[in-house]
Design a protein around this nucleic acid. Sequence first.
DNA 1: GCAAAGCTATATTTTGAAATATAGATTTGA
DNA 2: TCAAATCTATATTTCAAAATATAGCTTTGC
Lengths: 154, 154
Amino acid sequence: MNATDIKERLSDKTRPVFAIGIAADLVGVSVHTLRMYETEGLIIPQRTKSKRRLYSQADIERLQCIRVMIEDRGFNLAGIKGMMSMAPCWEIKGCSESDRATCDAYKTSLEPCWLVKSKASACQDEVCSECAVYRDVTTCHNMKSYLQEHWKNA
Amino acid sequence: MNATDIKERLSDKTRPVFAIGIAADLVGVSVHTLRMYETEGLIIPQRTKSKRRLYSQADIERLQCIRVMIEDRGFNLAGIKGMMSMAPCWEIKGCSESDRATCDAYKTSLEPCWLVKSKASACQDEVCSECAVYRDVTTCHNMKSYLQEHWKNA
DNA sequence: GCAAAGCTATATTTTGAAATATAGATTTGA
DNA sequence: TCAAATCTATATTTCAAAATATAGCTTTGC
């Protein structure tokens, strides 16, 4: 591995590097709170072979967004989940008509697609935590602009 | 007024006919709760000359939607307000570029447009409670489909 | 080797949003 | 006329979401 590789790996925001204790410190919440957000489906940390959670810089930023929603805007976890479920995953993923027909996340789902059981073939082999729908739907960016971006070509 | 007129007036869902006590009974909440929803900006009942609230059938249905969000989906009032603020009012109202430039509700606002102070000229003379943005953005219909409808021509 | 940190699961506590209550004035409508 | 309903404003209570704590076990890393 050369210097460029090292720099790239260190700068990769999606690289899981923080144990839950460190992540909790960075976000300013308890480790239990981070586990709760995971249970609620707001965050999907990577896991080590022995099932320990590892958070990336992107995860930290996602969690900071969640905190902003809670502390500054007064949302509860259900509301944040509801906001996240507004992403038109079928547009982002380019689902075919038949994909849409068989997918619970198509239009009517009230949950984020990464929490939906019955998925379209387009998502079958996808790791949700690496999918653009999950990664890009954070709650603190300009959700309106984000949605418009993804919907105007629908 | 002929029979047709009477029928029309009775069937007009936007006609304010229910005093707050009746409305509270219909929705299954207390009168205080209805006043609170108004303070939070979730509902805009009409007023009589002496400032008494009057609710329409459409208002009742809007309130029932709010209850569904709270009881079935676990949202709090901040979350419902956040959902409502997702409507792209500038598309629905056909705001010009200059309208958008001067309006706080354009894209970045975290509040529903009817709670925003500095409005575009397109809304200056509008009564928000009669505006399509307010009327159509309820929280229990399929929000995804609704948003797609209004965004796909953007 | 072993203390520190993490794991799941469950139980308990806290806290603030939401509901309820109170007060004093006004309006409604039988 | 006057009791019932509504108004605004404020204070108090409730209760469940969110946070904290506990237990028993496993993994990590010094």
